[in-house]
């Protein structure tokens, strides 16, 4: 479905030094430097897969996404999406894909969303019967109801996102690119969006590519993740494996029937949290069995669970490592 080989994307940027004097100098002489936003990436994505692009800000995720959608031309490399070369943006290609940007909207601001739906029907040349069917389905799944009749500007952010998704799916794209789709939404709306996107993938078999900083999005939607850092692909595989690789340790969550001394806990492993309700220990995978039996034997345990570390932490550790490497390189 998607095939990327040796993708490079370089930008020439104008250096803007701080300060008034420097700014004045830059009026007359400008300095440029080349930045490799994407620096040699290869991957394949099969039909119907759901893949998350992860990486710190400025890592090259969105650039890659835009190259795949045909908005940016690669500096070099080979990209094919659904048998098309995205950069040519042929109708046949455009009718098969859709890009949803959490921070930008395609809905017409001062008109009801129904007008945008109608516009997209015409633009994507969707047959009337199919349009009606799709719209009914979307209306039901997203519970659009009367939202579609109100001017977009009067909708809340969450309502707008639901309509945005509906507008994006009118032509039933086979490849859906989502860039930060849940940004700014409240928790229940995030869940709604995620469930809806997952269901769309299941029902239509569409391929899904997502970038997000929200790890709940990734955990719910993407069995496979591709981690991009400084333009390079640093990991491509299952999310579960990524987690064990970065943080091989487990968390033992304990609840006690009476209060326990912090010192007693520290004897078992690293204490992550210790308060009245519950205590969390961080222990290596190999030591889990021993720690659990010791805790059960020596402490008044009322409840015990073993968990993976939270995804947010895994990611921040991953990015912190790359940040540390960057600083080290800059210093040397």
């Amino acid at each position: 479905m998607i095939r990327v080989r040796g993708l490079h994307k370089h930008y020439k940027v104008h250096e803007r030094p701080p300060g008034l004097a420097a700014a004045l100098r830059s009026v007359f002489r400008r300095r440029y430097k080349t930045i490799a936003a994407v620096d040699g990436i290869d991957f394949d994505i099969a039909d119907g897969e759901r893949v998350g692009f992860l990486g710190p800000n400025g890592a090259g995720k969105t650039t890659t996404l835009k190259v795949l959608a045909g908005l940016l031309h690669p500096t070099s490399g080979e990209v094919s999406v659904d048998g098309h070369e995205p950069r040519r943006r042929q109708d046949a290609f455009l009718k098969r894909i859709m890009l949803v940007l959490g921070q930008k909207q395609q809905l017409l601001w001062d008109l009801p969303p129904s007008e945008t739906f109608e516009l997209n029907r015409a633009v994507y040349d969707v047959p009337r019967v199919q349009y009606k069917e799709t719209l009914d389905e979307l209306t039901q799944l997203l519970q659009l109801g009367e939202l579609v009749g109100k001017p977009t500007r009067t909708l809340s952010l969450g309502e707008r996102m639901k309509c945005e998704l509906a507008a994006a799916l009118i032509h039933r794209p086979k490849v859906l690119f989502l860039d930060e789709p849940t940004i700014g939404l409240d928790v229940s709306m995030q869940a709604t969006v995620r469930d809806f996107v997952a269901r769309y993938n299941e029902r239509s078999g569409a391929t899904l590519i997502l970038t997000s900083h929200n790890m709940d999005d990734v955990a719910r939607l993407c069995p496979r993740v591709i981690v991009i850092d400084r333009g390079k692909l640093v990991y491509d595989g299952t999310l579960a494996e990524l987690v064990t690789r970065i943080r091989p340790d487990k968390r033992v969550v304990l609840r006690f029937s009476r209060s326990v001394d912090a010192a007693d806990l520290a004897a078992l492993g690293k204490v992550v949290r210790h308060d009245a309700g519950e205590s969390v220990l961080q222990v290596s995978k190999e030591a889990v069995n021993a720690v659990v039996s010791r805790a059960l034997a020596h402490l008044p345990v009322s409840d015990l669970t073993v968990e993976n570390p939270p995804l947010e932490e895994v990611m921040s550790e991953l990015f912190a490592r790359s940040q540390a490497r960057r600083v080290a390189e800059a210093a040397s």
Binding site: L108, D110, L111, R121, A122, D125, P151
Partner: peptide, 25 residues
């Protein structure tokens, strides 16, 4: 971008554009 497709979409583009113009009276 095929002309045929654009030609077919044109009436709708006009209609929605008109609705926008009315919103911006």
């Amino acid at each position: 971008m095929s002309l045929r497709n654009t030609a077919r979409a044109f009436p709708t583009l006009l209609r929605v554009g008109f609705a926008e113009a009315v919103a911006y009276r």
